[in-house]
């Protein structure tokens, strides 16, 4: 069996959920992220920090899921921030102008405190 290309692990810290995203986020795996984010929001948590330290690749499909979830969270008074984004991933976010919309932090703790 092939190695999974995306792994997701979430942990709630108070009113904030920290979601560790590792692997590759593309047109194949983006629906997994959507399902996870939808479940977190359905559980009443609308402040989410995505820990991207283990994220190796992101395409427009992955950014699309984050963009939709960000709008959904903001509509409910929440927010989504990204932490630990690599230079390569940040470049893709820049190309999509997503860095103009989402906040980036180096450390998870800083993102949690700011949300």
């Amino acid at each position: 069996m092939a190695e999974p290309t995306l792994t997701l692990k979430d942990m709630t810290q108070g009113a904030v959920s920290v979601l560790a995203i590792a692997g590759e986020l593309d047109a194949k795996t983006a629906p997994q992220l959507k399902a996870k984010l939808d479940a977190i929001v359905a559980g009443g948590v609308v402040k989410i920090v995505c820990d991207c330290a283990g994220l190796k690749y992101i395409s427009s499909a992955g950014i699309g899921v984050l963009n939709a979830a960000l709008s959904a969270c903001k509509a409910k008074g929440g927010d989504i921030a990204l932490a630990g984004v690599s230079k390569q991933i940040k470049d893709t976010l820049d190309v999509m102008y997503f860095t103009k919309k989402v906040r980036l932090f180096q450390k998870i703790a800083d993102a949690v405190n700011e949300l």
Partner: peptide, 21 residues
């Protein structure tokens, strides 16, 4: 792109990306 981000759209930028790059 402004419409994309403001409406929380989830797709439709693939062609834009490869035409830009």
């Amino acid at each position: 792109l402004e419409h994309y981000h403001n409406t929380g759209a989830s797709g439709g930028l693939g062609v834009y990306l490869y035409r830009r790059l």
